[in-house]
Design a protein around this nucleic acid. Structure first.
Lengths: 181, 181
DNA sequence: AACGGATTGACAGCATGCGGACGGTCATCC
DNA sequence: GGATGACCGTCCGCATGCTGTCAATCCGTT
């Protein structure tokens, strides 16, 4: 009964791909983890009535005043189309304002409102709790290792996705808005 | 210059949650990894014209002949509503058949067709390549550790999601269909 | 100054994922 | 035997994510 010394962590080389293989493979597990993370976030934020993507979009707008759609898409790694749907939503809820600068009539620069700032302030505790709830099944060392692997996977594979993250060194987007802010 | 000995792997306890915090936190990274995994899958399967969820649904139907919607939802961890949309799609593409048994007129049992079997056969190589492409940035030991953490996170948090995985010990769903198969 | 390419916002289409609702059907309990 | 509750399929609504297209606008080059 000699066993193969290097049993792969997934993806054994059989001729068929069974449901059991799927359970063990990264694809299915990553999808499940994403489902779980979203569910926990929604549970924590149920009183604030905001989704994970809307939340990070609002954070990006606060940290980069004067964002437009493409810049937001790059900053939080969503495509232009999705970004275009988030703006009207946040605007309609009064969390952001959009201003068309006089020197560029096609742009609409986004700024967070006091209501948006308040929402983010009350969300700080919640998002920390959400992250704790997801990760607490791992001990501290495991968490560190897992996060490191996660960052490695995401950073190196970044360009593989259709909406890669493009961190920008923006001093202040509002500079392009030549009106008193 | 004494540094805190136990720097957390994410989620430092500052008063605000900045975009940089989001980049380091599990929520954003898990979403990104899911995006990347889907993009790589779609690229590998572009000739077969099938999505990740449709693929695993087809695998589940092959491995559990005579599935109905709720059972499929439990087996691959999607909700009933999503399962209800996958069946007509697979049926219309000729990958599965649905039969209403005479002794239960409300059910529609799903069976894979020869075309479906062929599609899965030609997908075995592709899904292995997709998984390799995602994971190859980690070395073999890192992959093993990461997959172990991933399984731990998903299994223990399973019930946190709205559509938890419910593995079933089904001998043969087709037994309930009292007609010659 | 005029043209062409790039950018921007907006929209449509398709697939997932979740919540909820509806009617038809079955099985069980009284 | 009839009513209740559970189950099944179906559909609607909303948000995400990606692919396209379109017109308006801007900008660099000629």
């Amino acid at each position: 009964m000699k066993q193969k010394s290097k049993k792969p962590s997934f993806n054994s080389a059989t001729a068929v791909w069974s449901l059991q293989d799927a359970y063990r493979g990264p694809g299915h597990l990553i999808r499940r983890l994403q489902q779980i993370a979203v569910a926990i976030f929604m549970d924590e934020f149920k009183n604030l009535d905001i989704t994970p993507v809307q939340h990070i979009a609002l954070v990006a707008i606060r940290d980069h005043p004067g964002l437009e759609q493409q810049t937001l898409a790059d900053l939080i790694a969503i495509d232009r189309s999705s970004a275009g749907r988030i703006f009207p939503f946040l605007e309609q809820r009064g969390l952001i304002e959009r201003i068309t600068p006089p020197n560029n009539r096609r742009a609409k620069l986004a700024f967070i409102t006091p209501a948006g700032t308040r929402l983010l302030a009350s969300g700080v505790r919640l998002i920390r709790q959400a992250e704790q709830r997801i990760m607490k099944v791992l001990n501290e060392k495991e968490q560190r290792v897992f996060m490191e692997h996660l960052r490695k996977l995401v950073n190196i594979n970044n360009t593989q996705s259709r909406a890669p993250l493009r961190m920008r060194s923006i001093k202040n987007d509002a500079d392009r808005l030549n009106v008193a802010e």
